[in-house]
Design a protein around this nucleic acid. Structure first.
Lengths: 200, 200
DNA sequence: GATTTAACGTACCAAGTGGTACGAATAAAA
DNA sequence: TTTTATTCGTACCACTTGGTACGTTAAATC
């Protein structure tokens, strides 16, 4: 979908959409998304501001596009872990390793950073954030459901509460990584938090 | 300390320091601290910008003064709960009630909001945030130490890890309140998180 | 009344923001 | 070769930000 629709005539486009999105994603990811200005992105991506506006339309739309790319290239891997349907203990350990120790997540998670700044975002980006958040909870719910039915998870906790709990605890850990907290402390905290899910 | 040092002559001061700090505190508290501009505060407090600068010196210094006032008038109450040295279960329930249900904390907690924006703060405010954060951990550590020695808390968890864990979980709950999350979900999550501390 | 001291606030500053007008440039089509 | 279609980027826009220069006003002191 979203074919380039290359025009038959006119001056050929020199703007590299992929490169621009990558540069913007790295910038948003490493710092607070909202403290990265369009001017800064233009300079880093070596793109003129009008060119950027021609391609995306607004800052909000650019951020949404970046978030989409991030969801597809980074977040999707996390969802796959849940979809595999491995036993609870194994899956939780995978989440812990991912959030606390994965070098890729050293600057934190772009999604959670944007979610934390939710009320300062534009409409487009904000609604995407909400969609991804809801999708994450749903994915956890589906996973927990399979674990409960297969007898791997014995707990009378309501599934929606635990799913939301997991999303928030992972988010907390990733936020702590962005803040530069010691990796050992993050892992210890996360293990403590997730231990409450396994036991009754 | 910090006597007004009223001058013997010159035009009398009309700026109301208390009122200004209160207005600024409410504004910083309710919204993201860094999205409240000095211009906005001047308008709300009915104070001219030069007057504000004469009194505080810079935006950073004003924020630090506001944080000091917040620590003294709001945060101190929380520390008192720990100092009381009540049994663990009771204290944790008090923390849960405070973070999840206290109407005063409906817009979240100014300290945790500032801490979340730590890297965007000025030097003065940032170092105060760090001091308060360290003081909070220390207070939790001291409390846990008394509980362990009195036999009310049987756990082999390292005290510093658990103290940090508690600070972060309370912070998460208060952040969730600021984000408008359902109070029941917040309480359920916090109970789940803190249950990991009581058991072994 | 004249002088000194200090706080007052209008009106400004430079810098940075998101966003755009518009003429030049470059291709294919006529 | 001219026309049409499309992208290019310089140079601007209005607006907001934190911060200040400076003439005015109001008190105590001489």
């Amino acid at each position: 979908m979203n074919e380039p629709e290359k025009p038959k005539r006119g001056r050929p486009k020199t703007l590299d959409v992929d490169k621009t999105l990558d540069v913007a994603m790295q910038a948003y990811w490493r710092e607070d998304p909202l403290s990265v200005s369009l001017n800064a992105i233009c300079a880093m991506a070596d793109v003129s501001k009008p060119a950027l506006y021609r391609e995306f339309g607004s800052e909000d739309a650019l951020m949404r596009a970046v978030l989409d790319r991030y969801a597809e290239s980074v977040l999707s891997g996390t969802f796959d872990v849940l979809a595999k349907g491995a036993p609870l203990a194994e899956t939780l350990e995978a989440m812990i390793a991912y959030a606390a120790d994965d070098p890729q997540m050293e600057p934190g998670c772009l999604f959670y950073k944007m979610r934390a700044a939710r009320h300062r975002l534009g409409e487009l980006t904000r609604s995407r954030v909400d969609e991804i958040d809801a999708a994450a909870v749903t994915a956890y719910e589906a996973y927990l459901e399979t674990q409960r039915q297969s007898g791997h998870w014995r707990s009378d906790q309501p599934i929606d509460v635990v799913a939301r709990y997991l999303v928030e605890q992972i988010g907390l850990a990733l936020t702590q990584r962005a803040a530069g907290m010691d990796s050992g402390q993050i892992r210890a905290s996360l293990e403590l938090a997730l231990s409450a899910v396994q036991r009754t």
